[in-house]
Design a protein around this nucleic acid. Structure first.
Lengths: 198, 198
DNA sequence: AAAATAGTGTACGTGCCGTTTACTAAGTGC
DNA sequence: GCACTTAGTAAACGGCACGTACACTATTTT
């Protein structure tokens, strides 16, 4: 008589409401304990949902984690008032770097773990905002101001964000000093195409 | 009487011999089933060692995996006959890209997973040969030939290998086409400092 | 020869996996 | 209003791996 364990009575959540609860719980869990220690059982406990409901929607852990991360939906920060290509780059990339610190960093780390651990090449899709799109905007503004002759091709556009990701993976942190060096030594010379800024 | 399970008699391996057996087994296991599915029990079974012996030396899975990867020690491939900066880059980076395919790729993937999953920033140390060192050699030869005025700074030197790693993480494969684009659109313009090669 | 060191097999409790079962609340068609 | 379908819940299952403990023994050191 100790455990009246039967929540089959409560107003039963469905559809979006339930999904929200599960993904939020998964996010929290990711931030607190990380990817490796996240389990279906813990998410079920935390969200108050049943394991089966979770398995039905996300048969594997990477899928669940990716949905959770996407659900969190921390959209990037806009360039703000355009000024100079160098200033814009430092500002935007600096914001990205700052966002990469806790607790989002832990979430990103989890996301990468999900991508790397199992065969899940869809890491590319989840560029968490800081993808070519962001860089393209910056480049377009520079072109409009006449600082840049053309918007670089995709591969070149994504160099800064790719290198930031790489830095994060290798060293765990991305500070402003790195951003400054990145802009000064790599992005500007590469985009402008001369060595004068070094 | 079915199981005479007691190998406590056999010539008992110790020290380096035992370590070798364990790490080799771990490597094989990594290549076959990947990081996520690798377990202490499977490594113990495969190596014929006991779990305790493994736990004593590598208390956590990332540590074990990193040792295993380091033990494998596939050193990079040398530039061979130097010719042109562009040719050297394509050759060396192409080799790196080819090495990144199976089975080494799976091992690298495991290594990254180990680094990313838990706080293990020592990914940087294990640059599996394709680090700044390799690029420095290429650059130095180009300087000796007069193609390059100076050897770029470390950050710039590691751009090609960093971007290859990033590509591997995001898309799972690194083909020669990517290498060609990388050399043509990024490395040469960045190192030479002009847009003529685009 | 005695003692310290280190490897082996076995067993244990715990936690999570992924699935199945039985039940029931919420929506749907009539 | 009522049958009927859909979907969420609790509980239990066998299985596997975890991480640790124990008793034992082979090897090395003193």
């Amino acid at each position: 008589m100790s455990t009246p364990t039967d929540h089959r009575s409560a107003p039963r959540r469905r559809g979006e409401e339930l999904v929200d609860a599960i993904l939020s719980a998964a996010c929290q869990e990711l931030i607190e304990v990380g990817y490796a220690k996240l389990s279906y059982e813990s998410v079920a406990r935390r969200s108050g949902a049943s394991k089966v409901s979770i398995y039905r929607r996300w048969p594997t852990k990477p899928e669940l984690v990716k949905s959770a991360a996407a659900h969190h939906a921390h959209i990037p920060q806009l360039p703000g008032e355009p000024s100079t290509l160098q200033a814009d780059l430092r500002s935007v990339l600096g914001d990205v770097a700052r966002q990469i610190d806790a607790p989002i960093g832990q979430l990103l780390r989890a996301l990468m773990a999900a991508s790397v651990a199992e065969q899940a090449p869809s890491m590319a899709e989840l560029s968490w905002g800081m993808g070519p799109g962001l860089m393209r905007k910056v480049a377009e503004q520079a072109v409009a101001r006449g600082e840049l002759s053309d918007v670089p091709v995709g591969l070149v556009l994504s160099v800064p964000t790719d290198l930031i990701k790489q830095r994060f993976i290798s060293y765990g942190i991305v500070n402003q000093e790195f951003i400054d060096d990145l802009v000064q030594l790599i992005v500007l010379p590469l985009w402008l195409g001369d060595k004068s800024s070094r």
